[in-house]
């Protein structure tokens, strides 16, 4: 039960299945900005074979009462099929994909490749003066990799934001409730 005197913030990774119609993303984002909720990351793509259902993954944070509100507010949007608080519901996987460009010469290139190897980042583009690494992982892993690359020529980062799914057999489906 949410407690209003509880000021402890927690992070929440929320999966939302929505009808893939015009304006649905604006509705979700407008809800967060209009009500002053945090968005740490948001990803969206269609997930069923007909492209009618999209899955939005939102990473947010707030007090327990605020997170309860966020879920209830999302759930009452007309095109929303299902809202699932993966953080609360149990073990789940969170992954993010990043493309990381490092520009440099000489020893820095060697060091960049060595670190990439340790982090299991793949080289997906290379010139004599640059690499683009691709890596997946949770946000912390990508943050750590970027931090190490910074002094040796980190030039640009592009990240997808988190996608997440529950471990095991439990499933929220990809097809809405209809």
């Amino acid at each position: 039960m949410p407690d209003p005197t509880d000021n402890n913030m927690r992070a929440a990774t929320i999966a939302v299945l929505v009808e893939n119609e015009a304006g649905v993303l604006a509705r979700v984002i407008g809800l967060f900005s209009g009500r002053g909720y945090n968005i740490d990351s948001l990803t969206v793509a269609p997930v069923d074979e007909t492209g009618r259902i999209s899955r939005i993954t939102i990473v947010t944070s707030g007090t327990e009462m605020v997170i309860e509100q966020i879920k209830a507010q999302l759930d009452r949007l007309v095109p929303v099929h299902k809202v699932s608080d993966l953080t609360l519901e149990g073990p789940h996987l969170v992954r993010e994909l990043a493309l990381i460009k490092v520009v440099g010469k000489g020893d820095n290139r060697v060091e960049a490749l060595r670190l990439a190897d340790a982090f299991r980042a793949r080289v997906v583009d290379a010139t004599t003066e640059s690499f683009v690494f691709e890596m997946t992982g949770n946000a912390d892993k990508i943050d750590a990799f970027c931090a190490l690359m910074r002094p040796i020529g980190l030039a640009e980062v592009s990240r997808t934001g988190a996608v997440a799914i529950a471990r095991g057999v439990s499933s929220i489906g990809s097809f809405g409730e209809g």
Binding site: P4, M65, E68, Q69, Q73, D75
Partner: peptide
């Protein structure tokens, strides 16, 4: 809010789940 009906157990019936526990925690 912090002084609202301090000693009561609260029951809240509402058709909109987002109205519940929005301003006041209920039992």
């Amino acid at each position: 809010l912090t002084h609202f009906s301090p000693g009561s157990k609260k029951i809240h019936a509402d058709i909109d789940p987002s109205s519940i526990n929005k301003n006041v925690k209920v039992d």
